[in-house]
Nucleic acid binder design. Structure first.
Lengths: 327, 327
DNA sequence: CTGAAAGCGCTTACAG
DNA sequence: CTGAAAGCGCTTACAG
């Protein structure tokens, strides 16, 4: 079967200890034995068993990544960015698509622990699911407040919401509405709404937010958007809390024969490569996905290396407005 | 630190052997000891160490998944579908985004072996990268021929290409062109082109295929598409080998003030949820992504359970045409 | 510079 | 019905 360290040792004419030493480049080894060990490894096509190493070292170099689903372009890109950065750092990622379902997420947490992951990056939130503090597992959250102790990374949602709203107003909108996903207070994304409301208030304008309770439900989204147009026939600007929502708004607007950006201006949030490719017309607030990915991984690594050290609690990255043609 | 089986045994007043037995539900255990073991496990908040189990069992229940990148909607959805089905089967997935780079893919293969994965699902191909036959690792490929022995799963590319081309012709197109990705012979996706050529020939029409050599390069894609329009001003139908390409064609057509579908008809391939949501107008050939995902996992599991048994070499799933408004 | 021994946390024959 | 022992493939003190 698969050659093990013992086999390599036999071929090289040394002890397993020595083979392990050259493998890990630890201690003094004479050049000649080092060479003969390497030769033996090549000859046998030896591949170390990371399970055994991890068991001993109490370190797997595996992290868990929990996202709602890689089907969503934002999370698909975030996942790619995180995994890529991890692989450059020698970290491996165990992927978990929670589908925002409590039962699935719970199961994933247990699975990750059983597999002794060194840490986990979470892009979901299920209230009260986990005793997030009563653990000793390094965790970094993306755009979700899990607990007082867990670092959060994301785009500067407040600045983004402000930028979006101000962009609409600066283009002459008078009646700006906002569509958002589920308004849980734990989501920093909620700051997008807050910023919208603040800016509107500062300009002496009323604000109205429409909520799509179940985020990946297309029909419900459509229903809410229709309602929005029905209740506000005079709307001239919409800030959608993500690009898919913005595109849905645009589709509905077209059905109603509203010309964009003349009669209605629309701006989204996220600015994924995907949406930018498929619909370059869409004006949006771009999140720096790869920066968010790198920061999350780096913060996680710091926690892994030095669990006792305090880490930065919140990291918000700058956003940019992308001027497409819908604003 | 973390409680181990020994700690549970001590609390329950039994031997580690017995704890292991109730954990694995193997052999006869009296109800009373079973209960006391469970109680001890709860009390200590015991979580089994899968590393140790895997080391002994020579089975990790982890598989590797290699895709170009989850940023791409097709692979993002495929990844989600595969991971989901896996998790329902008690399998975990180690994600690898190869970015179609030989060096990365090579590194991933080694990583997966070191981690003792039970098998791997591959959605990429790098010619001659691996001695695909000189291994004993269960592998399933998605839409790529890796070697004579490795099962391939995908959509019925030939039928899809035929359907696409026939749809265009049936709508009255006379001058149909085809845009495709890199034309490696190893890709069954090449059958999409073959089908296009065959159908055109059967109808006594000339066929011209444009190739975009580097698949995820937007600029190059644009360049090729421009060239296509320049060289064929009389084109009235385009079959693009994937939806993103089709959307790029449509964008260029709009720039050239061609009205769709009146003057130009366009049909794509893939039919991801994403594109269907963002651009429901696009007519396309839909691949049954979740069926492909399930078949791949199932085939892999069969190989894992019974490595000596022959598996089906090729599995092609039916496609469907989606009639949007671009055809 | 190199090796024998013990141990990472689990499981499974083998006894009893 | 239950336990002591050996072993999965590695690594690291500890001797020499």
């Amino acid at each position: 079967m698969k050659p093990k360290i013992k086999d390599v040792a036999k071929v090289a004419g040394v002890s397993p200890t020595t083979v392990s030493r050259v493998l890990n480049d630890r201690g003094y080894i004479s050049e000649t034995t080092r060479k003969s060990v390497y030769d033996a490894m090549h000859q046998l096509n030896y591949i170390p068993n990371d399970l055994a190493r991890s068991l001993f070292n109490q370190r797997t170099h595996v992290i868990g990544l929990i996202v709602p689903t890689t089907s969503n372009p934002f999370y698909g890109e975030l996942t790619a960015a995180i995994e890529n950065y991890c692989s450059a750092q020698g970290l491996k990622v165990l992927l978990c698509n929670s589908l925002n379902r409590v039962d699935k997420e719970k199961q994933y947490w247990e699975m990750l622990r059983r597999n002794q992951v060194d840490g986990v990056i979470v892009g979901t939130y299920n209230r009260g699911l986990l005793d997030y503090d009563g653990h000793n597992l390094p965790i970094v959250a993306i755009d979700h407040y899990l607990s007082k102790a867990i670092p959060v990374v994301g785009s500067d949602n407040y600045a983004g919401g402000k930028l979006a709203t101000e962009t609409l107003l600066s283009k002459g909108c008078k009646h700006v509405l906002h569509v958002n996903g589920p308004l849980e207070l734990e989501t920093p994304a909620n700051l997008r709404r807050k910023a919208y409301e603040d800016v509107m208030a500062q300009n002496g304008l009323p604000h109205v937010t429409y909520e799509v309770p179940h985020v990946f439900d297309r029909n419900e989204q459509e229903r809410v958007i229709k309602k929005m147009f029905d209740e506000h026939p005079d709307v001239d600007g919409v800030f959608a809390s993500d690009d898919l929502m913005a595109l849905a708004v645009i589709r509905e607007a077209r059905k109603r024969r509203l010309s964009i950006p003349k009669e209605l201006k629309v701006i989204g949030y996220d600015g994924t490569e995907m949406v930018r490719t498929v619909e370059p017309e869409l004006s949006t607030i771009c999140q720096p996905i790869s920066t968010i990915a790198e920061t999350s991984v780096t913060l996680l690594q710091k926690q892994i290396e030095a669990p006792e050290k305090k880490t930065v609690r919140e990291t918000w990255h700058e956003v940019e407005v992308f001027q497409g043609g819908t604003v």
